[in-house]
């Protein structure tokens, strides 16, 4: 189980509390956040983009992506 760094692009609905939900998931399940950037999606102000680098083994990475997709206000999760 090799620990690797990876970067996620997460598109969320631009609503109050959404960032809390995403961050809360990481603290609740014990995942790492190494860096974090949040900003409006230029072409679509109703959505925001979160770019996050995290680290973990393959299983953790798979879990992070799946758990993020379960958050109602998360529209898209991509590994970049």
């Amino acid at each position: 189980m090799e620990i690797q760094n990876f970067t996620l692009s997460i598109i969320v609905t631009n609503k109050a509390g959404v960032l809390s939900r995403v961050i809360g998931l990481f603290s609740k399940r014990g995942y790492n956040i190494d860096t974090l950037y949040v900003g409006p999606k230029v072409e679509d102000p109703r959505h925001s983009r979160i770019i996050m680098t995290s680290s973990g083994d393959d299983a953790t990475r798979e879990q992070i992506i799946k758990q993020l997709r379960k958050i109602f206000d998360v529209q898209e999760v991509k590994l970049i």
Partner: peptide, 11 residues
Amino acid sequence: VDDAEINKNIN
């Protein structure tokens, strides 16, 4: 029904 349960606790 929940994809996130797959390989969460047991592979």
